[in-house]
Amino acid sequence: MEYWQIRNTIYWGMQIPQCFKGKIIMKHNSRLLIGVASLFLILMFFFPIWSIDLLAPQYPEGIGLKIWINQITGLKPNDLNNINGLNHYIGMKAIVPDSIPELTIMPYIIIFMVIFGIGNAFWGKRKLVYLWIALFIILGAIGMYDFYIWGYDYGHNLNPSAAIKVPGMSYQPPLIGSKKLLNFTAVSLPAFGSYVLGVSVLLTTAALYFDSKRGSAK
């Protein structure tokens, strides 16, 4: 983006849309909390949001995947390659992070939500804060659905000439929780990055709550 584009984006971004214009501005402390909650989201760039651990007797040292907002890595170096190697027996497609568009989009969504949240801290408009929370819940739901679709696709779209074919068997990892997949038990759980998101939403909700308390007390 050119400088003027960035400047205009920020300028128009700072303008509160007409429909949300009103007189009531949130209290200072609540707005501060909203700002903190938004900045807190930046931690999502440094921690995985989801983990899939694979437990099997042959891997006492553990093997698994970490899903980040912008990449998929192994629990240990080489785990991703080794998992792809194992999966070829059942005809599962190789997991190639570069070919998953969500990993490109997600960072922008988080950046947008951070900026939006900081905007809320400036503007102090309750309706916009509600919108921020609603947006996050919708995005989260879409994300989980998307994750399910990917899992379904990997688990069901198997190469028909695979070496190991178990009639009726599919290898979709669980969305949350654990599931037995042949000799592996797959345990899929949110990781620290997801908790960061949860805490950020909770803090913002709390800010709304405190603001309304104080408002009614007045």
Binding site: E61, P77, N78, N81, N82, G85
Partner: peptide
């Protein structure tokens, strides 16, 4: 000469 490389990266 068979120059054989083991591509595995697993213990």
């Amino acid at each position: 000469y068979f120059h054989v490389t083991n591509l595995e990266q697993d213990w």
